[in-house]
Design a protein around this nucleic acid. Sequence first.
DNA 1: ACTTGTCCTGTCATGTCGTCAGCTTACAGC
DNA 2: GCTGTAAGCTGACGACATGACAGGACAAGT
Lengths: 213, 213
Amino acid sequence: MTGQVRTVDGRVAGRRGQETRQKLLDCLREMLSTSPYRDVKVIDVARMAGTSPATFYQYFPDVEGAVLEIAEEMAEDSGGLKELVDGKSWAGKTGFTTSEELVDGFLAFWRKNDAILRVVTLGAAEGDKRFFKIRMKVLNSVAAPLTEAVRNNQGKTDKTVEAPAVAGALVSLLAAAAEHGKAFTSWGVKVKDLKPNLALQVYLGVTGKKPPK
Amino acid sequence: MTGQVRTVDGRVAGRRGQETRQKLLDCLREMLSTSPYRDVKVIDVARMAGTSPATFYQYFPDVEGAVLEIAEEMAEDSGGLKELVDGKSWAGKTGFTTSEELVDGFLAFWRKNDAILRVVTLGAAEGDKRFFKIRMKVLNSVAAPLTEAVRNNQGKTDKTVEAPAVAGALVSLLAAAAEHGKAFTSWGVKVKDLKPNLALQVYLGVTGKKPPK
DNA sequence: ACTTGTCCTGTCATGTCGTCAGCTTACAGC
DNA sequence: GCTGTAAGCTGACGACATGACAGGACAAGT
């Protein structure tokens, strides 16, 4: 799909080149999770990868370009989140389990891609269309199947509910919790209570009913 | 409270100095709303303010230091958000109006301080305690009185509801909507429907009941 | 060993960062 | 008005990041 990997000046990268490129991406990822985005410098990434800045510029136009690469990879990976909702039942106790597993999976994914998602979120907020698109791809991998779930469940009881809006709000809440979990604990939500609380919100949003005890 | 304004090397700033300092802050604020945070350079801010980079470093340790200054100013300003909830009624139609006005006021505040809040949010997500504290101050100016509102209303009908958690979730949702409004429209929520939808969510969260028609 | 095309780096011009000595300006005390 | 002192500002500088290029190193096939 992506075609061949190419250098900035148009050459096709071979085996060795791709390895170097990948190492640079890995080091950048590492860098992003240990330093503020603003302070990530090409020279540091290159040093960590045991190569020179010039090599970095062979494969990427700049730091942002490389970040986009990582972000796109992550967005591909996010497709797996669909399985947390697709084909799951929302009835009774099983439904609440579905909700719990969704919350669990989503938070795990976010934590795993913590650093890159921070940058993507910033870029999207700053109005960069490329980052916005990537962020939407991640959120939609949950929001889309969740919209169906809302339509099939809550829809039965209340026709006035706009399924995409509800699903969007729920996903936004999950993203907020994942990104700023500390805020919730400082509001007195105990760490171990965060997931159950979110699961409850999701269950309520999807079914429009309180969960069975 | 803040004592006297001082330069980095400890001198107290006089009238002219404070003017220069303020002009630098204003230009930085402007800069933040027109360029990506990563690309905001001291030299550009100084140029825009008609002064030299060296002058900038007289008043601020670095860009981040100046940003913190702006952010703290904004956090002070956020105290006014309390009035959107404090002493308001949540009963019947009046209650829904309260909810609408809260949503309106919150979104307006966020839009007004768009650029700086983006940076604060990033800093908080990156684990910087100073930015986290500022972000909490802004969110709490709504979350705190909202917690009381939840306790006084929903609390009556359902003792199991954790008021701070509900208020926190609502504020998080508002922040997400403010920061990533475009995401909601791309989920098919019409621009004019966003505020009513949020108002509905808030009303539901606080009272636990559907609003009167 | 030679050729070919990929891969990497030394080096350079440009520009930013952050600091400092030193010049200019404001002002209080006489 | 004169002078001393502190505030205010900048030119200049060393250190470092950026981005481009030419050319050397390397692997693979002949």
